[in-house]
Structures are given as C-alpha cells and as structure tokens.
Amino acid sequence: MKQNYTVQAWLVLILAICYGGALAGMQMKLAPIIAENKINETRQKVPELVLGAENAATKLDIKPETISIDKGNKKISYTVFKAGKDGQTAGWVVKNADQGYAGKIELLIGLNPQTDTITGLFILEQTETPGLGNKIIDWEWRKQFINKKTDKPLVVVKTGAKEPHEIDGITGATISSRSVCNIINTATNDLKGPLGGKQDSTGK
C-alpha cells in the first residue's frame, strides 16, 4: 500500500479549498466597505485642504480626475480631486506618494484654483519612525505649508525658516521632512501647467 504525496495531503488540500472559499466570500463582502473607507477618508479631507480647517464642514462638489503627464521618457498619472462650489472651481486636491525614510509616504495636497498657492496638506499614509518622523502628521508641523507659493521649490532648513519658500525640518527627522517637501515639489511642478490651464478654459 504505497501512497503518493497527493493522496497523503488530502486533508491539506481539502482544508485549503475550504479556507480559500471562506476567504473569497469574506473578501467579496468586505472589499467594497474597505474601498469606501479609503475614498471616504480622502473625500472628508477635501474641504479642509481647499478652504482651510475653519471651513472643514463646507459641502463641496468633488470630482475625481486622472491627469497623465509626459515626463521625457516616462508617463506619470496623478489622481486629482476637483473641488467645486456654486459651479466655480474652489480648488484642487492632488494625491502623490513617494519613498520616505521608513516607507512610502502618501500625501494629499490642497491647491487654490490658480494652483499658485498651497492651501492644505494631509498625510494619507506613512510608516515613519514613531516619535520622530511620524511627527509629519502633526498639525503643528503641517500648518507651515499653508499659503506657501508654488513658484519656487520648497526647501527644508534646520534653523528657523526665514525665506517664504523655506520649511522648518523636524529635529531628528530631516529625511522625512525633506521627503514630504520633495513629494509636494514634484506634484506642484508637474501639475501647475495642466491644472492652471484647465482653470482658465473651464473655470468661471
């Protein structure tokens, strides 16, 4: 009575099929809820990012768009949320992500309709060091980005920002601070043209 491995493993195979089925069923039920959680989080943040924290409860028409940009040899796609109020463009929220110190940092950047000023910043996802790098999520740090102009790239400095395009780095987390600035700089630099142009042609 010689048994090959497949016969011996019948229990493993049956269990694998049962577990797989159970997981598939659960995924079918929960996936829409999880996807909705993520979109809700972004949508909830849009008014605050465009109009400021004091107007966070304002209702805006939010239209997601995808904008592709040719950058020499590669194509980059941005997810952009157009926030409209009374038929006019109230501002833009741009999603952009890149490598931070410990992992991916994903940001939502609020821009005014002309895309020349930053109106808000929210950290959607980060895995920076607790107590140091993860201070990028603190409002105290994020608020210095508000009303920064996008004509010049933002620069992180260690000893008190003086120039309008300078940002105070977080002590002990220069790389995290710099990553956030770089992500913003890339996004504003890439999208200033396309979004500003859209504003002129489709705006008021």
Partner: peptide, 30 residues
C-alpha cells in the same frame, strides 16, 4: 492529521484566520 503534515495545516489555519481579522479591521476599524 498526519504528523509530518501538521505544521502545514497549522500555518494554513492560522493564516486564514489572520487574514479574516486583517480584513475585518480594515473594514470596520479603519
């Protein structure tokens, strides 16, 4: 349970329930 396959079965079972917890938290305790 066959003794030489028990670790496979343990891991399979544990992984299934961990995935359930992970998805559950993402859905209801985001």
């Amino acid at each position: 349970l066959k003794p030489h396959l028990r670790i496979v079965v343990f891991t399979l079972t544990i992984a299934t329930f961990v995935t359930i917890v992970d998805r559950f938290l993402a859905a209801y305790m985001y």
